[in-house]
Nucleic acid binder design. Sequence first.
DNA 1: TTAGATGTTCAAGTGAACTTGAAGTCAAGG
DNA 2: CCTTGACTTCAAGTTCACTTGAACATCTAA
Lengths: 147, 147
Amino acid sequence: MLVEPELTIGAVSERTGVAPSALRFYEAEGLIHSTRTAGGQRRFTRDTLRRVSFIRVAQQVGLSLDEIRDALHSLPERRTPTEKDWQRLSRSWRPRLDAQIAMLERLRDRLDGCIGCGCLSLRFCRMLNPDDRAGELGPGPRYVLDS
Amino acid sequence: MLVEPELTIGAVSERTGVAPSALRFYEAEGLIHSTRTAGGQRRFTRDTLRRVSFIRVAQQVGLSLDEIRDALHSLPERRTPTEKDWQRLSRSWRPRLDAQIAMLERLRDRLDGCIGCGCLSLRFCRMLNPDDRAGELGPGPRYVLDS
DNA sequence: TTAGATGTTCAAGTGAACTTGAAGTCAAGG
DNA sequence: CCTTGACTTCAAGTTCACTTGAACATCTAA
């Protein structure tokens, strides 16, 4: 069997571009895990690099660390995830990415027509305020209808 | 001449979906402006609705309030902006929107191929870390090169 | 073996973007 | 006129995602 190569926090930091303090923070938040040396220093397995990259990517897509933790919990905890595991996880993102892209495209395509012509409107704002947002606000006229 | 219709903070809140406290905050931050009644209450002109919508849209695109303030400063201060003004502003966003969309599309198209296959890689992370990010980190190997 | 780079914890600080609370004032309908 | 809901200010609190600092321990290469 392979001996898992163990990475120091500095090594993970260097290879991911994420500060050691952030990695400690992620560990405290349950997003990554480490073992400890006899002296109490952290040692990370290589799949941590993938986890950390995943975290940064997820943040770019607009997920909070809480949501990311939930997503990562679908990976086998404390077991090196297989490619299948990662594939399943990444596929679960497609809808979110598609939605985000669609929103930005509508935004781009209407920017002149909407902001530009001065009719930044109800429809426009609805577009930017998915159901969850609109829902939690209660009844009544909500967004700009105004010319 | 028209008398500018004046809106209370509650009216602006209702029509934009933005809390009164947030509107006060935006005013304190110089993103919107108001006049005051004899009694000291705020009154907003209708173009504030557009400004506020613009602010929310800009936030969706990932701009900070600081950046948004800068953008809004290209509008004539304390003068109702013309359609041309808004058009110029919205057009200045095209590159940003295009970039954001392109990033998300690359992300979507490579998600399986990259995270999925386990090669969440240097190239991948560069894609997500535009020059400014990569630049400020200094020299040395930076991102995940690792299988 | 020892210097010094790298690591440790824990508490507190930061900045962005607001929200909340207290204590009080204004404005419009009956 | 008076009530009542909407408004005012100001300071402090909140959440998120970290960073910083102090004081100390460990690890590794010479």
